[in-house]
């Protein structure tokens, strides 16, 4: 079907990004291929290595899924920041990654968890690593005739704690800046510290902060050491809500707080 309609066709999932674009006449596709009637796309499967999220799993359903929360807490930590409940009830997690908005939370989570995107087309199936998927704001390597059937978010090694923090003007709005952080502790000391960002990079990517803190006891770290590294990594743009400098300073501070949270003994991941 997607091959037949080609460039003039669009997949309709939750419609929470696509229908606003249509309503504002920013895009006028001749065909919409509504996938909501396809059975088998609405399941969440949890294993030791991945949480596999089908294309019709709504943000709200994934957020509620207890086994996914347990295996990969970063999913629900981030999902609580995606829009308002009424949007989360329709919008799909897979759709938000397909949409590839630099201000979206889930693309940053996909990259940090080394997610794998499962795509199908009339010519077969293909798996795309999240790191190779995002090309630019709203741009991905998905072909016009490809449908994502599911995304597998990878789990973290044992001893990993995660946090997701963002700052938005109202709860549920797109973030001025946000961060997903993952801290892995082995034998009581930091083995790895990774972060990815929302609204401050064109394409979500991983910043490896391990060298700054490797081998230290997490409780004793002054996390302000990450601030400069983060500020040097991001390339925020200004808009009516905030200047680029403000966003840069904000994301540095959010990252410091996020790691402090992952390192705090009472917060279990």
């Amino acid at each position: 079907m997607l091959r037949e309609v080609g460039h003039d066709g669009k997949v309709l999932a939750g419609g929470q990004s696509l229908i606003p674009v249509l309503n504002m006449r920013l895009a006028q596709p001749a065909h919409l291929v509504d996938i909501n009637g396809i059975s088998g796309l609405a399941s969440v499967e949890v294993s030791d290595t991945a949480v596999r999220v089908g294309a019709l799993v709504r943000h709200a359903a994934l957020e509620r899924e207890a086994s996914a929360r347990h295996t990969l807490p970063l999913l629900s930590q981030a999902l609580g920041n995606v829009a308002h409940p009424a949007i989360r009830n329709r919008g799909t997690t897979v759709g938000s990654i397909a949409h590839a908005d630099a201000a979206g939370e889930m693309p940053a989570v996909a990259v940090l968890t080394a997610a794998v995107i499962e795509a199908v087309s009339a010519s077969g199936t293909r798996e795309i690593a999240a790191a190779d998927f995002f090309q630019g704001p709203l741009e991905t390597t998905l072909a016009e005739d490809e449908l994502i059937v599911a995304i597998r978010f990878g789990t973290f090694p044992a001893g990993t704690r995660t946090a997701f923090l963002e700052s938005a003007r109202r709860q549920g709005d797109y973030a001025l800046a946000g961060v997903a952080a993952a801290l892995t502790v082995a034998d009581g000391v930091v083995g790895r510290a990774l972060a990815s960002f929302v609204s401050v990079t064109d394409v979500p990517d991983i910043l490896d902060l391990t060298e700054a803190v490797r081998g230290q006891e997490p409780g004793g770290i002054d996390w302000s050491v990450v601030d400069d590294l983060v500020q040097g990594h991001v390339s925020p743009e200004a808009d009516i809500h905030a200047t680029a400098d403000y966003r840069r300073a904000l994301v540095g501070e959010l990252t410091r707080r996020a790691f402090a949270r992952t390192a705090a003994p009472e917060v279990s991941a």
């Binding site: 003039d8 596709p29 001749a30 065909h31 919409l32 291929v33 509504d34 009637g37 396809i38």
Partner: peptide
Amino acid sequence: MTTTSFSST
């Protein structure tokens, strides 16, 4: 799958 046709430019 259902296709819904849209008036377009």
